[in-house]
Design a binder for these strands. Structure first.
Lengths: 298, 298
DNA sequence: GTCGGCCATAGATGCAGCCTATGGAGTTTA
DNA sequence: TAAACTCCATAGGCTGCATCTATGGCCGAC
């Protein structure tokens, strides 16, 4: 009269996923006969056949489907327990899944990576790049733990913290008349051709917003897929673009053919923040991470 | 390196509820040392202290509280699984997906529906109509559980059972010379115009097969999409057709303008059977269903 | 100081989960 | 058509761990 065992449910879910006893066993790190026998016991205990075993086809019964659904929830909650425990064991240790905007990641990380390693040596960062909408989805689903993006965003069930304010700069061809100026006003962009990223990048909307007060024309039939593409187009003299300050530094800023110029005050800027689930067990380490990033980003 | 066990979580929840190891053990039907030792192992595995053991006072730590919360959810879902299984334990209960040929369904079901409800009261039938090829595909893929169709069919991986033999009848316009006859021989159809269903209906092939021994002409550029269409065409005097007996009864048979006549012996007929996957977990209820249909179809 | 309540420890035991090896049914290949 | 292959089930043996009873240790109550 054995009872329900977490491991058996994992075996069942593995079979549901793979439709194959051998591969399911492999995924569970047990031998195929072990998995077979345990599943048989599970079926005996429940008094219901869960799996149809045909020569070339493994499928779940109706009861199997319904039970696998709950089993997934159980296993998920079990993982949460382990995760919570890990969070309490050493709140500043463990794996943390961090996503950044594509217009932030490559330029922010070099500045803060070494500081982070020193301040949070036992933190294992998993890095991802997503645009705002995708990032929020994956935050809610639990696929990532923290997102670094431009505020404000819809905050239902989420907490956030401002990291830094990032000024915008203007990138023009080196031979452009504006390249002579040490700083630039928004009105100076009058009648210029503006190059922007493709839809979905929040940077695109931010740039359009800043330029809305002056008369500037977006280059038709052109949408860059990355800031790097944008740089090459500016260097080629096709038009100008707005760059977040961090992206204008380093190799990018020194690139041939492109001049980066600041705005005069009031400098247009965007607010970069960290966002995470209110219910996250990793709040402590996230706050520590945010503190480091906020302190060393600019 | 043990892993998370459902039973341990139950022990933990019991302690959270009772604040007392002895009574918690009692509730779990184990000895107190057993529960103590297991909880200690759980804490070791998770790397976190869950319970504050003070003299005269047992309390949960912060981690303990958070983990108990998930543990309750897990146990609850586990109970749901057992409950679901109990609901599926009755082999004659539950949802069964049954497909019928379009030339069978509307005429067979009225005859057997009430008998089925009486004999298998806890069976919930989901009804579908497909032609033979589609039905076999959906059977193999698991989309349906049973098919009722004309035998024989390719039986790889499938089991079948004959339900009944269905004689063919002849449907002629009421004013037709054959309407005067009380029964008809295949040869009597000589030189008649035959109306048939469109390709894909096995009834079409069966009718052609029966008529192959005599000289009869299929109406060109005409293919009915249903027996109902066929009836209207016969009533309009366009030609004659062959009908399965069940389809010739009731409202259909009594319709104006159409006369239904039997064949003389040997009466041509088709064999109607039930087909299901050899590996199906529903064999028992399928056989019960087949028994009822076979007994009350004609 | 003694008793009683309560949790931890010690040592014995039996079951259950796991392994390797093999069987057997069905499908594909030579 | 035989042989090789795929894949799940069965057989048998081993090991570990959950469980038991008995006991110890700690602390508060009286």
């Amino acid at each position: 009269m054995a009872d329900l065992k977490l491991k058996d449910l994992q075996y069942l879910v593995a079979v549901a996923d793979t439709k194959h006893f051998g591969r399911a066993a492999e995924r569970c790190f047990v031998s195929q006969p072990t998995l077979s026998a345990q599943l048989k016991k599970l079926e005996e205990y429940l008094g219901v056949q869960l799996i149809e075993r045909a020569p070339k086809r493994v499928a779940l019964t109706q009861a199997g489907h319904e039970i696998v659904e709950r089993a997934r929830r159980i296993i998920e909650a079990g993982d949460e327990i382990v995760e919570i425990a890990r969070g309490h064991r050493d709140p500043l240790a463990g794996r943390l899944k961090l996503a950044l905007l594509p217009t932030i990641g490559p330029y922010l990380l070099p500045n803060v990576a070494s500081k982070l390693r020193k301040a949070l040596p036992r933190l294992e960062l998993m890095l991802y790049e997503y645009q705002t909408d995708t990032m929020l989805e994956k935050l809610h689903s639990g696929e990532i733990d923290v997102g670094i993006l431009a505020l404000p965003v819809a905050m239902d069930g989420l907490d956030s913290q401002v990291l830094y304010k990032e000024p915008f700069t203007v990138a023009v061809p080196a031979s452009h008349r504006l390249a002579q100026r040490s700083s630039i006003r928004v009105d100076d962009l009058h009648d210029e051709t503006l190059l922007l990223l493709e839809d979905g990048h929040c940077l695109r909307d931010q740039a359009l917003d800043i330029c809305s007060s002056t008369d500037i024309h977006e280059k038709q039939d052109f949408r860059a897929t990355s800031l790097e593409t944008l740089r090459q187009m500016v260097a080629a003299g096709v038009g100008i673009t707005l760059l977040p300050e961090l992206a204008g530094r380093g190799a990018y800023g020194n690139a041939r053919g492109v001049a980066i110029r600041p705005f005069v005050k009031p400098v247009p800027s965007r607010t970069i923040g960290a966002v995470w689930r209110k219910s996250s067990a990793r709040r402590e380490v996230i706050l520590a991470l945010a503190k480091q990033v906020g302190a060393h980003a600019l």
